[in-house]
Simulated assay, not measured.
Amino acid sequence: MKTRLKITGGIYLVLNPAMELNLLLQKLADALKGGIQVVQIWNNWPAGADKLSLIEHIAGLCRFYRVPLLINQEWQLLQASPFLDGVHFDGIPHYFDTILVNIGKPFLAGITCSGNLDDIAWADEHGLDYVSFCSMFPSSSAGSCTIVMPATVKEAKKMTRMPVFVSGGMTPENIIALKKQAPFDGVAVISGLLSAANPEQKVKQYHQALNYKAD
């Protein structure tokens, strides 16, 4: 029986499937060596993409390191692929109870929160595995996310025992600055790792910053 993986915090890598496949897999392999804890495939597919094949390639690397693999938004792919562990929703999903019935098996789930603490309450009530705030800092990857105040993250940590991630323009430097203002469990990144010359070393820098103990 397949052991269900867990999400507890750490470095959460969001993969851009529009990248050239070999480069994407090499960046992922290096990041996994560095110690990332979660991988999500962003639903930014290139035209004509073979989604199931790409998921299988990515999952082959994630499985070796026992890192959970999630898909962004497209929960139907959990029915089509045995290689996915869960789904990340960009907000509270409509008809969540129907989604649970349709998937028909345990899966990991998280949502993006854009500064609305009602989203935290909903996720906690529905037994989600984590929440992620977007965006803490301006970022091209974060798209239309509004800027979230550290005080909101601090309040969210009082409301739930779920892991709380922060995202949007996160660097090792501003992680430390943010830790001085609010507690959080993990950091979600895209370009911060995918554009790095040495993703393995960059992950270690993120970990060092995340483990910083604020006074």
Rank of each mutant, 00 (worst) to 15 (best):
E155K: 11
S191T: 10
P138D: 14
V153A: 10
S139A: 15
F89A: 07
K51I: 09
L108G: 15
Y65G: 10
V148L: 04
L178D: 13
Y65R: 13
P150C: 07
I58C: 12
Y212C: 07
L100H: 01
P199L: 09
M170E: 00
D129S: 12
A214F: 08
D85E: 13
N116Y: 08
I190N: 02
N72K: 05
A188I: 02
N102C: 04
Q181R: 10
T98D: 06
A196F: 01
Q205N: 14
S140G: 01
T3Q: 00
E125P: 03
K157L: 11
K33Q: 10
Q40A: 11
C145W: 04
F137A: 05
P163G: 05
L70M: 11
A59C: 12
F165E: 02
F184G: 00
N72L: 14
Y212L: 04
Q73C: 11
L52R: 05
Q201N: 14
Q205P: 14
Q37Y: 01
I55W: 07
P199S: 12
I190T: 12
Q201S: 15
K204W: 01
A49S: 07
Y12H: 02
S53G: 06
F184P: 00
W122G: 05
I111D: 04
W42Y: 10
K105D: 13
M1V: 10
E155I: 06
A197K: 10
L210P: 01
C113Q: 04
G110F: 06
V203Y: 03
Y130N: 05
E125A: 15
D118I: 00
H207V: 09
Q76R: 15
Q73W: 15
I71E: 14
H126W: 05
L5G: 10
D119V: 01
S135Q: 12
L178Q: 02
T152G: 10
V101S: 06
D124S: 13
L178P: 06
I11R: 03
F165D: 01
K105F: 04
K51L: 04
P183Q: 04
P46M: 07
A123N: 05
S140E: 08
I111T: 06
L32R: 01
P106K: 00
S195V: 10
K213P: 02
Q205I: 06
A177P: 06
D97W: 04
M19Q: 09
G110D: 09
L54P: 09
S141V: 00
A47F: 09
K157T: 13
T160W: 06
L28N: 15
D97E: 15
A156N: 03
H57P: 01
N72A: 14
S81K: 07
L23V: 14
N16Q: 12
I190A: 07
K157D: 11
M19H: 13
V189P: 00
A31W: 02
L117Y: 10
S140W: 05
N102T: 11
L25Y: 14
V166K: 00
Q181V: 02
T146I: 12
G127F: 11
S135M: 03
A29M: 08
T171E: 12
L28P: 02
C62D: 13
T98R: 15
N198T: 11
A142Q: 15
W75L: 14
N174E: 14
T8E: 08
H94V: 15
Y12N: 05
S191M: 09
V148G: 00
L21E: 11
L84D: 02
T112Y: 02
L70V: 11
S139E: 13
A156S: 11
W122Q: 05
G104R: 06
I147R: 01
